[in-house]
Write a protein that binds this DNA or RNA. Structure first.
Lengths: 191, 191
DNA sequence: CGATTCTTTGAAAACAGTCAATCTGTGTGG
DNA sequence: CCACACAGATTGACTGTTTTCAAAGAATCG
């Protein structure tokens, strides 16, 4: 893979080469095998994780053990349990690789240092969190106002790249319907 | 009302009196009557709004005209359509007062200026947005994993202050169920 | 009061969930 | 190359919940 992260930074902000070097110099590169966890419930989330290649999911378990998927993340996405990462409290979530995945990781302390030393990085993250909040509120709106079928269509429009890459039963766990229901509403009108 | 906003700032961060003055000096104070809108779909959202007293809701309309409530806000809460406010694009949401409400308002340009001049204000807002994102993701989790009844109980636990202050049919519109369903699940509470 | 606004109720229809079985494709080991 | 196991997807019959539609009871307010 080419240097996804450098390309990402250049695309999302205006960083000097020196700044990119600083940011990258603090990163840990890591390869995560399919089905390998980088976070389990009960553990503290230690890293901000950038995905340079591959795919992961973040989920929690329901009372009877069902997976409820909070988010998928692929190339150019960040993933972490922010609540645990910022507070230092144990997480209630799991993060696992759905494919062999290459990531870059920073501790929160390193991030705080980067925010101070590289104002543009601080600005970038403000934009990211802000956009994530908007996206999350859009999802809440979808959850409370769409039918199962509309949620599925909205999902396809928003994450076309995940179709085929993520099994359908996980999309069901993301939408909040059973896999059987997803199968049936797909059958009602093929895409 | 005493100066809710000064108390709020002192409670949420460590501001000098001079800083509080700067922040307050840029604010517009405004009284909003019950049922009066401060934002309608199609308009651009111009202000970050702090509620010193009263109650508002932010909602969007579904295809057949039903209200879907994205959030309630009371004293010490901020409310705005961030998407529109930051982008300058027309909003797709409505913000309306549920009671006579006193607010303070700042444009985004004023906020940007405050972020630069008062670093502690910048830090406060980072924390707020971050917490809002966590809360929104918790709500998504609730939406996809709880039954209607569990959602209602979770709502009561999370916003005990809104019971009695907000009509039940709005709570239904927040939870994503019909008012009839909410009535019925409330009725079948034995304990 | 009279007029909204809000809440509740009933009955039927639409919808999603459950349980159990089957079908499909994939990959592994013999 | 085949047999088998496995994960994923589908189907059917059934149950349970939620919506819809229609109506009628409370509560609130000018």
């Amino acid at each position: 893979m080419p240097d996804t992260f450098r390309r990402y930074l250049r695309e999302k902000g205006s960083f000097t080469d020196a700044q990119v070097d600083v940011i990258e110099s603090l990163a840990r590169a890591r390869m995560v095998k399919r089905k390998q966890f980088i976070l389990r419930a009960g553990e503290v989330c230690h890293y901000h994780t950038f995905i340079s290649n591959g795919c992961m999911k973040l989920y929690r378990l329901g009372e009877t053990g069902e997976e409820h998927i909070i988010k998928f993340a692929i190339e150019d996405w960040w993933i972490s349990d922010r609540q645990s990462l910022l507070s230092g409290e144990p997480s209630d979530s799991y993060i696992v690789a759905l494919e062999d995945t290459d990531v870059l990781q920073w501790t929160n302390a390193e991030f705080e240092r980067l925010f101070k030393e590289v104002p543009e990085f601080d600005a970038l993250f403000k934009r990211l969190i802000s956009k994530a909040l908007d996206a999350s509120q859009d999802r809440v709106f979808g959850n409370i106002s769409y039918t199962a079928e509309e949620k599925y269509r909205a999902f396809l429009e928003k994450y076309p790249g995940l179709m085929g890459r993520v099994p359908l039963h996980m999309i069901a766990a993301y939408l909040g319907v059973t896999r059987e229901t997803l199968t049936r509403l797909r059958g009602r009108r093929p895409a």
